[in-house]
Structure formats: C-alpha cells, structure tokens
C-alpha cells in the first residue's frame, strides 16, 4: 500500500470505508436503544468526513462500531462495515486488534483519560509501533521523537520521558494525535477531539490534524457537535438525528443549501455574524427537545419539532434519497442526499 501518495477525493475512487445499513442497538431494561439505526456512508481515501449531530444522535456510536468497541448490552445487529476488502462487523477480536491502532486509529474527546497516567508518553507512543511493526527499540524511539516533533511538542527528546500529568490539555491532545498517527493509519476517527479545549488551542489542533492526514493520505472521520468547526475542515458532512442520517453531501453544499429542516435549524441556531447589525434579532430555534430514543414517534423522528411536518411525516419514515449536488462536480460522491418528505427547495 502506498497510502502516502493517495490523492484527495476526486471523481473516481473506490471507497476506503463503506458502511452499509449499520444498526447498533443497546438492549436495556428500559427497552431497545437504537443508537445507530440503518446508517450508510462511504469514505474515500484521503477524504475528511464530518459526522455531526446533537447529543444522542448516535455519532460517537458509529465511531465505536467501526472500531469494534461496542460492549454488551450493545451489539452491532445488522449491516456491514467494509474496510480494505474485509467486513469489520464480522471480524473476531484478534483480527480487530491487528487493525486497531495500525490501520484505523481513534482520538477521543478527553485527553486526560485517553492517556495512561502510569506510563511515560514515550512508552505510550512506542507501544503502537511495538505491537504493529518489527522496528528495534532504538528505531521506535527515533520515530517517537520525530512524531512528537511533527505534532509541535518542543524538546521531544526530553518530553518523551515525561508523564501525562506534566502536560497541559492541549499538549496532551497533541500526544494523543502523535500516538494515533505514528503507525500511519489509513483511517483516523476523531471523536470530539477539540471540544474540551479552548478556541485558540482548538484552531492549532484542527490545523495540525488536517496537516497530518494530508501528509500521510489518511482519511479522517471528524465526529463533533460543532457545525462551524466541521464546516472548516470537512469535504463531506453527514448529519445525524436519533441514530439516522437525515442529510449527507458535500460540505459546502450542506452549509449553503441545506435540504433537511433539521440541518437548516442547526445552522440557524448558531448566532451568525449577520445577526448583528444594530438591533438584536432573535435566533431562529428548533422547538422542543430531542425525543427519548427508546420511544421514538412513528414516522420521521424529527416530525414533532419540524415546521414542515405533515400527516405523512407522522406515519411514514422518509428514506434517504439522493439528488444531484448543486453545481460542484460529478460522480456518486458528490451527491446530496436527504431523508425528508418535504425537503427545502434550493433557492438559486
């Protein structure tokens, strides 16, 4: 594999990751929690995909499902996760272990708990290499120093011997990125990687992540609730609501011309620059709350909060249907798909 020379997403590429009809359910005493319920998407080599939605949308569970980290009472009930010719949903724990960290790496939200406080960060960076490569201890150390340097940690030779508590939050997240990227994975899943950090540090880290994945041709799934951050980074955006995809398409298209009322609502909920021209305008808001996922209403899950809902929406589930994206590019990857009976029409 020469993943370093992978092109940016173009017109024709076989996807690196293809998720089809994924259902991850949790069997609890209170009922079945359909955290992920029939989700399908492709990620091309080198693509940055943003997975957005509010809490309870199922975005983190998609990441965990791909990594094979769903524990009972949760289970991947149906669907396939094709990655490099294999279906990850069918692999055993041993096979998954050879993929995790080497081919697919993950960055978690909280850099405080993602690192082991009892080992030096040098140990933790080298561990990945020790597990997945045949490099000597000396070579591993050199690689670790090089990686720390790349993620912008000053004096990497000395810092290698330090413990996590000797680093600030931003620096710890850099270490976590170094650990994730050192084996040059083909896919990186970042679950709210900057949510716990300040804006100035967040900007540093998003730039760093983008630079790292671009250099090594790694695909990135960026999971976040922050639509603004995603719009800065992603090539494509997938919007989730109550475990289902409500909209999927090219990032610019989704932000500028959302078709699903939920996406539109999310975008309008963010205080925009244009709001401030003298008078304070009210933010447009999505009424109500996210429903209890164990007791979803029949039909479209968003219908009770949707200004466009009709009788049809309360009876029949809308299916994700693809239309051509507006303007930019051709090919199946450029399609803009919406699961809505009454999608917003595109204003010219």
């Amino acid at each position: 594999m020469t993943e370093s020379s992978m092109p940016r997403p173009g017109n024709v590429t076989t996807p690196l990751l293809s998720v089809k009809g994924l259902r991850t359910w949790f069997h609890t005493f209170g009922g079945i929690v359909k955290a992920v319920d029939g989700v399908s998407f492709d990620v091309a080599p080198g693509e940055i995909m943003g997975l957005v939605g509010e809490s309870g949308g199922g975005k983190s569970m998609i990441g965990f499902s791909i990594m094979g980290l769903i524990d009972p009472p949760g289970r991947v009930e149906a669907g396939s996760i094709e990655f490099g010719g294999r279906d990850l949903a069918r692999l055993g724990e041993d096979e998954m272990r050879s993929i995790r960290g080497k081919e697919i790496a993950m960055i978690f939200q909280d850099p405080m708990t993602a690192l082991n406080p009892l080992y030096t960060i040098g140990n933790q960076i080298e561990e990945t290499l020790a597990l997945h490569t045949t490099l000597s201890a000396r070579e591993r150390r050199e690689k670790a120093i090089e990686m720390l340097h790349k993620v912008g940690i000053p004096q990497p030779e000395q810092r290698l011997h330090h413990y996590p508590h000797q680093f600030s939050g931003g620096m710890r997240q850099r270490v976590v990125i170094a650990i994730a990227m050192i084996a040059r994975p083909r896919l990186l899943i970042a679950d709210e990687p900057t949510t716990a950090l300040d804006v100035t540090i967040q900007a540093q880290l998003l730039r760093l992540m983008r630079q790292q994945v671009e250099e090594s041709g790694t695909s990135l799934i960026l999971i976040t609730h922050d639509l603004a951050a995603v719009s800065q980074m992603a090539d494509t955006i997938v919007v989730l609501y109550c475990g289902r995809i409500v909209e999927r398409g090219p990032a610019g298209d989704i932000i500028a011309r959302p078709r699903h009322p939920y996406t539109r609502g999310l975008i309008d909920s963010i205080p925009h620059e244009t709001d401030i021209d003298g008078a304070k305008r009210r933010l447009s808001q999505i009424p109500g709350n996210v429903p209890d996922i164990r007791k979803l209403p029949p039909g479209c899950a968003f219908a009770p909060r949707c200004p466009r809902a009709s009788g049809l929406c309360r009876m029949q589930d809308p299916v994700l249907s693809e239309r051509e994206g507006t303007g930019d590019g051709q090919g199946p990857r450029r399609l803009h798909a919406t699961a809505c009976h009454h999608p917003l029409t595109v204003s010219p």
């Binding site: 900007a203 540093q204 922050d226 980074m233 932000i255």
Partner: peptide, 18 residues
C-alpha cells in the same frame, strides 16, 4: 481569528497563537 466561522475553510494560520 481562532473562532471557527461557519462555512469558511480553515485557512493558513494568520494570527494563530503559539
């Protein structure tokens, strides 16, 4: 400068703080 803006791609670091 660091605050993310909806719909604008993350540009090169202009006034990024070290």
């Amino acid at each position: 400068a660091a605050a993310p803006q909806l719909g604008t791609k993350l540009g090169p670091a202009t006034e990024q703080l070290g």
